[in-house]
Design a protein around this nucleic acid. Structure first.
Lengths: 252, 252
DNA sequence: GAGTGGTCTAGACCACAAC
DNA sequence: TTGTGGTCTAGACCACTCC
């Protein structure tokens, strides 16, 4: 039912600004994506073909192809030789994001708080060196331990190790959103490797998370780099099980 | 330390086969990737620049760009305007795969077994309809429940729902590798959405997994499509906590 | 200023799908 | 046979980085 052929491709009302510093292929991709998310194009609809689109918009074919290829990589459309380009179901379009728990809580309308439990600077600890990243042994790391609460309820214990050239101070951590802080410093988080496992809480975790009986928790470890390959963060987080689930989109 | 500039870009010994049906940009990307994984290019090395590479190999620039852009998207190299293209650390190159537990066990040298607990065909159950995928209510689904063991030890309980047009029979499931089976039918698994959470086992899970005391488990739910947007599988799996961890690479 | 990648053009020919 | 996307060429100009 998804791939029912609509007989006629839909022409979109697209306006390109050639004076803008934004690349044309990006403007085009954005316009098509907007039409899809706005429901102007629904799953199964066929896009206007490349030749028609390029002549109508006054573009060269490779420019339009670059835009559409981007959407195909994102899983918004499928391209089939001899057939055309079709819009895919919105359900499969969610992308894996490198989001923080803080952002997730804000997005879901809850009010997160953060309590800084400890802040230390020192040489890389064994658990940092053993995380799989290649680390210059001389590098100093800032180690922070924080408790995250949502609407007053303890949710997670977060231990983060950050290279000290980032110069993150205790004051920087006051408002709690570590990834927002990094982004504001012009760091583009690029690729992360994350391991997730489940286990019973330790007694200390139980105490910090105000659980009276030991229950299950989710333990994550992530290694985050920036787009130039610099190691930015190693995080070991423990989440109260019933209060948190991890959403991941996999692209094989 | 990672981004130390090597003064001289390294010229690779690349042979392209213009009679091959494999696209030139793909041959080139593969050759460069092979040089990186073989250690011929090490992290921090600079790639030969585009103009030199294209004139040396007799290619047009867009062709070479397409190859290098592919590697940049995979996180193998970084490109910087005015600087060049550098090889990134191998540590961050692991990609999220849509792998099955079966493949993972084989890869780690253990011998997986699968026991089929139940096999039913019927209309979509509520838990299928509520999974977030848009499903034609009339579609029939095959529901299978399996127990996965590694070296004789129960590891996971797996419940899968598959649309019946796939015509998966009980016999098909004998050797256990569901994803391998799907691939052999020419289905390209494309995008999945997966939710992971931790909780305590239920009594029945405890019994099936031969755990005498209730312990933590990891529960995953994944929705899998193919590259044309067809719904292929909905899976709800429960893993014994200490025996399994999920590896995920995130690309924001 | 020299060297790099980023964008864009205006074509060409081919492979595949549908009719 | 016609229409579609897939690949490829041979250039052009621009923006950024480093010296």
């Amino acid at each position: 039912m998804l791939m029912s052929q609509s007989a006629e491709p839909k022409q979109l009302d697209i306006v390109l600004d050639r004076t803008s510093p934004i690349p044309l292929y990006h403007q085009l991709a954005h316009a098509i994506e907007a039409a899809i998310t706005a429901g102007e194009l629904v799953p199964g609809d066929r896009l206007e073909n490349e030749l028609s689109m390029t002549s109508r918009l006054g573009l060269a074919r490779p420019t339009a192809r670059q835009a559409i290829a981007q959407l195909a990589r994102k899983g918004l459309v499928v391209r089939k030789r001899g057939v055309g380009t079709q819009v895919l179901s919105r359900q499969i379009n969610r992308q894996a994001r490198l989001s923080s728990l803080y952002d997730d809580l804000v997005a879901s309308g809850r009010s997160p708080q953060t309590r800084l439990l400890s802040y230390e600077i020192g040489e890389a600890r064994p658990e940092v060196l053993s995380c799989g990243a290649d680390i210059d042994p001389g590098t100093n790391f800032i180690t922070i331990k924080r408790l995250r609460l949502a609407d007053g309820v303890p949710l997670a214990i977060m231990v983060n190790h950050l290279p000290d050239w980032l110069s993150i101070s205790e004051a920087d951590l006051a408002d709690g959103a570590l990834y927002a802080l990094l982004r504001s410093r012009g760091i583009n988080l690029r690729v992360a490797h994350q391991t997730v496992s489940a286990r019973l809480m330790t007694a200390e975790e139980c105490r910090l998370l105000s659980d009276h009986q030991p229950s299950a928790c989710m333990a994550t470890q992530r290694v985050v780099y920036d787009d130039t390959g610099r190691l930015i963060e190693i995080g070991r987080h423990v989440y109260r099980a019933p209060h948190y689930s991890l959403d991941v989109s996999l692209v094989p």
